[in-house]
């Protein structure tokens, strides 16, 4: 894998992932409709484009065909579902991560090359772990 990552949507999730992968020296391209989104990504050394990814010509222009991984993280679940299908069925992107707020939508993205990221469930998981360990600790304090 050449390490070509395209991140669509530089909101909180997208920009954190962009920063992380950038730091790990992947070749990162970020695309967002809003030109101010770049401010979210600190020390970003990758390529940033202001454009609407729901336009298929934009995706072609930013080199989606050469992407190894695409992270779809706009603020709208439906746009994310749509973009997942475009990346998967039209461009055959080998690995896709898609951010979804609504767990119900995850069923629309069940393909082998697609992994849904549900920030709410992830935080809930994490909270649950923290809570369990807090409870365990409280129990043992006498």
């Amino acid at each position: 894998m050449n390490g070509n990552v395209i991140i669509i949507g530089a909101g909180r999730v997208g920009s954190s992932i962009a920063a992380l992968l950038n730091e790990q020296n992947y070749h990162v391209t970020v695309i967002d409709k809003n030109k101010d989104a770049l401010m979210n990504v600190e020390d970003f050394t990758g390529y940033f484009e202001v454009a609407d990814a729901s336009n298929i010509e934009v995706l072609q222009r930013i080199g989606i065909k050469n992407a190894d991984v695409v992270v779809i993280s706009t603020e709208d679940d439906d746009t994310n579902v749509f973009l997942t299908d475009v990346c998967h069925f039209v461009f055959g992107v080998p690995r896709i991560f898609v951010r979804l707020a609504d767990a119900q939508k995850e069923r629309l993205c069940r393909y082998p090359s697609v992994r849904a990221i549900l920030p709410f469930l992830l935080s809930l998981d994490e909270f649950s772990r923290e809570f369990q360990s807090a409870v365990a600790n409280a129990g043992s304090r006498r």
């Binding site: 439906d78 749509f82 629309l108």
Partner: peptide, 14 residues
């Protein structure tokens, strides 16, 4: 267009 697509997909797939 995107909402229409997702509505159709939901209707058909789910």
């Amino acid at each position: 267009d995107i909402k229409n697509y997702v509505a159709c997909k939901t209707a058909k797939q789910l």
